[in-house]
């Protein structure tokens, strides 16, 4: 579905992404982990078309990607951002936010599609005419996911979709993403600094460090500690030590 070959992104003189290659099959979830500045979000933004200054070769669904994307591309590939406070226009109601993609792509049945999307992300119909500031963080992220689903995409790019949320809301959103993937056969690319989240959602994981993809491994290998690169090992160790009380106490 997604093929990325020797992708490099430069900001001025600094190379933020250095020749990154990976493949994602249809219906699969691929995760990119790394610390801030590792270039993981930059990869995602290059794939989405937000950053046109890249070199290399990328294709989605067999179609080679140019720096400028077509309307059809944006219909097939959508993105969910990290900050649900910043990714929704502050002066637009949920109704307007959700109908915008439909208007851009000249899609019919606006009314029905909006109600269906709200239903799909488990939001009550009463939020339809609310503004983002009247919603909780979790509700906003659901609206953002609903908006991404409006053009009926095949691929969802998820940029730290739960890192701004409370842990209990994070669990709800992660479950929702799993349900949506099953119902729609979506392909996910998830970027996160949280190893546990990535391992939960994705079957295959790429580890990034200072712009390079240092290791590609399966989630099961990561859980079992079958890592090859020292950076992967140290990230894993830290995550287990700090975030999992049971295991930490057992040691």
């Amino acid at each position: 579905m997604i093929e990325v070959d020797a992708l490099s992104v430069c900001f001025g003189r600094t190379e933020a992404v250095k020749s990154v290659s990976f493949r994602v099959a249809r219906g699969e979830s691929f995760g990119l982990v790394g610390e801030s500045g590792s270039g993981k979000s930059t990869v995602l933004r290059a794939v989405s078309g937000l950053n046109p200054h890249w070199t290399g070769r990328m294709s989605i669904g067999g179609e080679l990607l140019a720096p400028r994307r077509s309307k059809a591309f944006h219909q097939r590939v959508q993105m969910v951002f990290q900050d649900p406070y910043g990714s929704l226009h502050p002066r637009q109601t949920v109704d307007r936010l959700l109908s915008e993609p439909l208007l851009v792509h000249h899609m019919d049945n606006v009314e029905r599609r909006i109600m269906r999307a709200l239903n799909e992300v488990a939001l009550p119909a009463s939020v339809r005419f609310r503004y983002p500031h009247q919603l909780s963080g979790g509700q906003r992220q659901r609206v953002a996911i609903a908006r991404a689903l409006m053009p009926e995409p095949h691929v969802l790019l998820l940029d730290e979709p739960t890192s701004a949320l409370d842990v209990s809301v994070q669990a709800e959103v992660l479950n929702l993403l799993a349900d949506l993937q099953q119902a729609r056969g979506l392909t996910y690319v998830l970027v996160s600094h949280n190893l546990a989240v990535v391992a939960h959602v994705c079957s295959r994981i790429g580890v990034m460090q200072s712009g390079e993809l240092v290791e590609l491994l399966s989630a099961d290998d990561l859980r079992a500690g079958r890592t090859h690169h020292p950076h992967t090992a140290s990230l894993r160790e830290l995550s287990i030590e700090l975030e999992e009380p049971e295991t930490a106490r057992d040691h």
Binding site: S48, G49, L50, R69, S70, K71, F73, H74, Q75, V77, Q78, M79, F81, S87, L88, H89, E100, P101, V104, H105, A144, R147, M150, P151
Partner: peptide, 8 residues
């Protein structure tokens, strides 16, 4: 950015 990604 989100609006740009809708293809507008």
């Amino acid at each position: 950015a989100a609006v740009r990604l809708t293809g507008a």
